[in-house]
């Protein structure tokens, strides 16, 4: 069974050789990665499949024109991040009207997680659930995804300073929750 795995954007040496015009190869190489990014950003299982499929459908138009194969992963990630932020924005709007439930552990499947990890994830996502989409995505990319600040800024289309401010604001809340 092929498994998705964390492939940091900056770890270019680990990027598999994939022909961007070959969708079968692209799906096999990156579906897990894209799904993992989306699931971490959303913090729940629902909507993940929709966003991932939409990411690949939208990428299909641009894949054959992608000259630099090493940018394939960034290309897919940037689409996924944009779509996820849109989904988070909608969810936040629904929450304001009481039409979307708040985060709780059963919404996210983590079969391999220890009890301590599950408790930590609960702390993290309860904080993230109250944050603005832009801030929570920036923090998640930086810490749960392990991306460099420069890559986070590039993926989100924000300046480095803005990304740092967004991450710092969320991180303070996460640390506070962890201390409690």
């Amino acid at each position: 069974m092929a498994t998705g795995r964390v492939i940091p954007l900056h770890a270019r040496g680990e990027v598999p050789e994939v022909d961007p015009s070959n969708l079968t190869e692209v799906v096999r190489a990156y579906r897990g990665y894209v799904a993992a990014v989306v699931m971490r950003l959303l913090g729940r299982d629902d909507d993940v499949d929709d966003v991932v499929q939409d990411t690949f459908v939208r990428a299909l138009d641009g894949l054959p024109r992608l000259q630099d194969k090493t940018r394939l992963k960034t290309y897919l990630a940037s689409i996924a991040v944009r779509l996820t932020m849109r989904r988070l924005g909608r969810r936040r709007l629904l929450q304001r009207f009481g039409l979307s439930e708040r985060w709780h552990p059963t919404l996210l499947s983590t079969p391999g997680a220890s009890g301590e990890q599950k408790a930590m994830l609960a702390d993290v996502y309860r904080v993230l659930d109250g944050c603005a989409p832009e801030a929570r995505v920036a923090w998640t990319l930086r810490y749960l995804e392990g991306e460099r600040l420069e890559d986070v800024a590039a993926l989100m289309g924000l300046s480095l300073a803005t990304v740092k401010r967004r991450i710092a604001a969320v991180d303070a809340q996460v640390q506070e929750a962890h201390r409690e």
Partner: peptide, 25 residues
């Protein structure tokens, strides 16, 4: 935190990937 992130990681079989690819197309 990065290790915590790796806990959240879906897995897909080749069969699931094939079905996914067909649906994307």
């Amino acid at each position: 935190l990065r290790a915590l992130g790796r806990v959240v990681e879906p897995t897909y079989s080749p069969l699931e990937n094939a079905a996914f690819e067909a649906e994307v197309r």
